[in-house]
């Protein structure tokens, strides 16, 4: 556990994890840095095509209210990294009622690839979590990023969940989106935002190949769509009744974008 100097009396856990993926011999990606404390247990898994695969092992009952978690991954030029988790991340209420913060920072270098595919983030009743994900991509970097939020466990009202996902490419803003759901968020469950759905997610794909062949806008049923961004990227946005239905929608979209998706 680390203590931040600007917070003399931390109410919750402060934990950080850091991954660095770098090019190694024979075109394989190596992991010179793979460190995590507190709830972050990172494992190296077997992967194919020379990429490295890091898995965040579950069994963490965090973030709790008051916790501050930070996860950083750097993919150096020409390296390839796949990141997964073994279980969903469950936001739970803490003892103090303080909000929790979970900050993810990702950087992907030239001709490097990152597949960031965590399991869903579940907002349990009474929890309050603010998540930020910031991605900095080099011009020739490739990214596949999946984000899924599930509002409440089965039959449970949701906690409060706010997220901001910001993606820059070659220093220029490509995608910036804030979502907010749950208590004290006006209108979140109305017909403009979720319309009664309890799972929401997106799959963001950035690939220089889109510059020559942009993705086509496409509908995937009544609550999901593929949208080309104003840049070499596409996002699949979906809402669904539950996590399983959401994953099906995103997976079907992923297969449609296969032209530019290469396995990592």
């Amino acid at each position: 556990m680390t203590t931040l100097l600007d917070l003399p009396a931390p109410a919750g856990l402060h934990a950080a994890a850091r991954i660095v993926a770098a090019p190694g011999a024979g075109g394989r990606t190596v992991l010179p840095v793979l460190e995590g404390d507190g709830p972050f247990a990172l494992r190296r898994l077997r992967s194919h095509a020379g990429a490295a695969h890091v898995c965040l092992v579950g069994a963490m009952s965090a973030p709790l209210g008051g916790d501050r978690l930070a996860l950083t991954a750097v993919v150096e030029d020409t390296a390839a990294l796949r990141f997964t988790t073994t279980a969903a991340t469950l936001a739970l209420p803490g003892r103090t009622g303080a909000p929790a913060a979970y900050d993810v920072r990702l950087a992907v270098g030239e001709d490097a690839t990152l597949h960031w595919l965590p399991e869903p983030l579940i907002s349990a009743r009474g929890s309050d979590l603010a998540q930020t994900v910031r991605v900095d991509l080099a011009a020739s970097a490739r990214l596949v990023l999946r984000e899924e939020q599930v509002l409440g466990r089965a039959g449970e009202p949701t906690g409060r969940l706010t997220t901001r996902l910001t993606v820059r490419r070659a220093g220029r803003l490509l995608f910036d989106q804030e979502l907010a759901f749950g208590p004290r968020v006006p209108g979140w469950d109305g017909g403009a935002v979720l319309g009664g759905h309890r799972a929401v997610g997106q799959l963001l794909v950035v690939d220089p190949a889109f510059a020559a062949r942009p993705a086509e806008p496409r509908l995937l049923g009544p609550t999901a769509a593929v949208a080309p961004l104003a840049g070499p990227a596409a996002v699949v946005s979906a809402v669904a009744p539950d996590a399983l239905a959401l994953r099906k929608l995103l997976d079907s979209a992923a297969s449609r974008l296969n032209a530019v998706l290469q396995p990592v």
């Binding site: 910001t166 804030e178 979502l179 509908l219």
Partner: peptide, 22 residues
Amino acid sequence: GPDALPACSAPLLDITAEQHAA
């Protein structure tokens, strides 16, 4: 700069705009 501005978004508005346009 503009990064200080909110970026609040409504998933259904984005998804259904694509349907409506079709």
